[in-house]
Nucleic acid binder design. Structure first.
Lengths: 372, 372
DNA sequence: ATGAAAGCGCTAACAC
DNA sequence: GTGTTAGCGCTTTCAT
């Protein structure tokens, strides 16, 4: 072996955690080179089977675990995915996180999760940290990411997926949730039951997704030629508290709407709770429709009619889109838009408006009957 | 420079993502060595200030972000913390995750989260993956981790924190939640109101924490000399569904208990929902007490009386314990147990048992009055 | 104060 | 088929 002339180091720093085992220990034990160990571990077929089994035996004996960081360093791929959500405590997100994590894991990726808590500064530092960790891609399930940063990343062709059109940039991977269709179904469901006075409790309108949902609602109402007075559009916060407050605002109105559509389920749940405190009954006096179909929705009293946005398909699409961006010859490498469909789930929080009850068939009676 | 004789590589593989900037680019741009850049970045005070500012300027110009993986590789510390929870969709955990993440982040750590879904195989693979990722320590907020694995890690002095005595091993960092005190307070609250027939809906008893909670309940009852008949101990699942089912079991009994204490809030919420479907009123006909004090608890109808276990203190203690294990000269490096206190939060789901109502003072009337 | 270079654990090109 | 070695990006020693 030819060495450089520099004198050997005097105090080789002992940085390894005691008990940590490296590829060299395995090689030594198995009496092969580290390259052979590496090949065996990576299941390169050309390795002699006798050697391979010696290697595996040694691996077992010394308790070797390949160091992912080192692998990442040399391969340039970390097999880490970033997942940015706005608020992990909002019940919609854990369900998404769970799906995302399960899928990622099964495909050999790990997930680094961050919640932004709607704080742009936090979002940016989060993004930076994810990049420093060399994540292979990031799914951004929130808003308020600075356009500048995103633009830079897009230029570097860094794999990035947004839900609902993210920043208005070309060449971005976007999961387009079909709010139009989902919310239209909700509106039409209510309209079909005879509602004409339908209020909408939105999310925080400074954010894109809540805005899109509100627009979808207004458009659906417009299609039916129903006017929505300003006082029937209340801004919530996509939280239970927001739903309570917003519903209280509606309750203070001279003329109550006969139905309320909510921008997400937590808002709808808040609305239900505000109503529990009044003599009004859901759905007999007022119908409530949510959006998301979180797990909790079916356990509400009455069980919540809502528009389902499948976490599963969201997660599947997000990961597929990310991998398409990561792996150069992924079949869908050029696809930029991924459509997420939604569907109405009719439960018992919606029925005919009081007074406009049509001659009731027995089945309708059952279907939309009182829940308690 | 003295080089070895080997011929130069023919196809230096291009693994770097286009746009990625390394320390060398900065050094080149600033006209200094990479060592100087490294020193500047790490704010080593001996760097000449003129050079340092040149370096920072270059960093800014090329958009350099230090690669954490490489740093971790050389320093032996990844500044990554593993957080294992049983089920991210259980509302208690997101609150914990949020606290944990915020704290970790503010201390320069990133968090790798995994949910086990109560699957031991999944737990083990998760643990292995965390180790491969070189996490500096792992907080295990769940159960069913194989003793063997844990034992190995403990031998290697790998920083590990468990909630509630984890495996029965010496020298393990444990967050001891003071169930005894919390549950005793709950029981005494009910007993003080006059309840003598108190049922308990436990969590899955195969797990340690639910078991400990049940034992604490039985002990508290025993202290008061109250016998708990077998049919008043129902096993739930720590989920809403489990609470519903368990409550239905209790409702089928000839003689109903006058109060039900639940092993966690989700169970209590399930119990409330099962009761909503009956003519029984909470708390007039039956009192319900939960455990955890999740965010949702205060929004129940009636707002849930529960024992608060603070996520914040849990997260604080977990991180402090981990850092104590990670950093050799941490002040609390030798501390093994961390006590987490709990406290009763009286809301409106508990009152006097029907019939045993003492001559009621006006204030008691208000305090424990009907919630709707 | 600064730079050269060793080396963290691993993969992959190359030589044999 | 197997071994040797360069090098991923960085920190840290050692020499200057």
């Amino acid at each position: 072996m030819i060495r450089t002339v520099s004198t050997p180091r005097k105090h080789p720093p002992e940085r390894r955690r005691p008990g940590t085992v490296s590829i060299r220990d395995v090689a030594l034990r198995a009496g092969v080179s580290i390259a052979t160990v590496s090949r065996a571990v990576n299941r390169i077929p050309t390795v002699d089977s006798e050697l391979a089994s010696r290697v595996w035996k040694a691996i077992d004996e010394v308790g070797y675990l390949p160091n992912t960081q080192a692998r990442a360093l040399v391969s340039g791929r970390s097999r880490l995915l970033g997942l940015i959500v706005s608020e992990i405590t909002n019940p919609f997100f854990p369900e998404l996180v769970q799906e995302f994590e399960t899928l990622a894991t099964s495909q050999g990726y790990e997930v680094l999760i961050g919640s932004t808590n709607y704080d742009p500064a936090r979002t940016e530092s989060l993004m930076r940290r994810l990049l420093q960790r060399n994540v292979d891609g990031v799914a951004v399930m929130t808003f308020g990411v600075e356009e500048d940063l995103v633009k830079k990343l897009v230029e570097r062709e860094f794999p990035l997926v947004f839900v609902d059109a993210g920043p208005n940039l070309p060449n971005i991977h976007v999961l387009k949730v079909d709010y139009g269709e989902g919310i239209r179904q909700g509106v039409q469901h209510l309209a079909a039951l005879g509602h004409r006075s339908i209020a909408f409790i939105s999310g925080p309108l400074a954010q894109r997704s809540p805005k899109v949902r509100l627009d979808a609602f207004l458009k659906s109402m417009d299609e039916l030629g129903i006017h929505v007075p300003a006082e029937h559009q209340v801004e919530g916060t996509h939280t239970m508290e927001g739903g309570i407050t917003a519903m209280e605002q509606l309750l203070a109105l001279d003329k109550l709407p006969t139905a309320v559509m909510c921008s997400n389920d937590m808002t709808a749940i808040g609305a239900l709770h505000a109503l529990y405190r009044t003599p009004l009954k859901v759905p007999q006096d007022i119908s409530i429709v949510g959006f998301d179909d979180i797990h909790l929705a079916q356990f509400m009293l009455p069980p919540l009619t809502t528009v389902q946005m499948s976490c599963r398909s969201l997660a599947v699409a997000a990961i597929e889109a990310l991998r398409a961006g990561i792996e150069p010859d992924h079949p869908k490498a050029r696809q930029k838009e991924w459509l997420i469909s939604t569907r109405l789930v009719v439960r018992q929080s919606s029925t005919f408006p009081r007074g406009s009850l049509p001659a009731m068939s027995h089945s309708a009676q059952q279907r939309h009957g009182p829940a308690r």
